[in-house]
């Protein structure tokens, strides 16, 4: 299923029921998230992974995206 379908469906439902939904979405979101991450771990556990390579790749991606964002903001944004 395309990911846009549940997202757009959710936005429409949320917008239509915006005055009726008083409860915060935090708890259902957290519960769904924890299950999802567990299942993701199960999928990942079945694949052979080089832990060091994974750590280095994650660190490089995180650092480069942060530095890239800072660079563009400093260069391109004027108040």
């Amino acid at each position: 299923m395309n990911i846009f379908i549940p997202l757009l469906l959710g936005i429409v439902v949320g917008y239509l029921l915006r005055n009726r939904i008083r409860a915060s979405m935090d708890k259902p979101m957290s519960a769904a998230l924890l299950f999802l991450i567990f299942f993701m771990g199960v999928e990942a556990g079945r694949v052979e992974i080089d832990a060091l390579k994974l750590f280095v790749s994650s660190l490089i991606f995180a650092s480069f995206t942060i530095l890239g964002s800072l660079f563009v903001a400093l260069l391109g944004v004027r108040r």
Partner: peptide, 20 residues
């Protein structure tokens, strides 16, 4: 279950954006 939870989470995120 994995896919089901993913679509459920995306749906909830959609509701959260829609009701803001």
């Amino acid at each position: 279950l994995y896919e089901f939870m993913l679509y459920l989470l995306i749906f909830i995120i959609g509701i959260d954006i829609g009701k803001s």
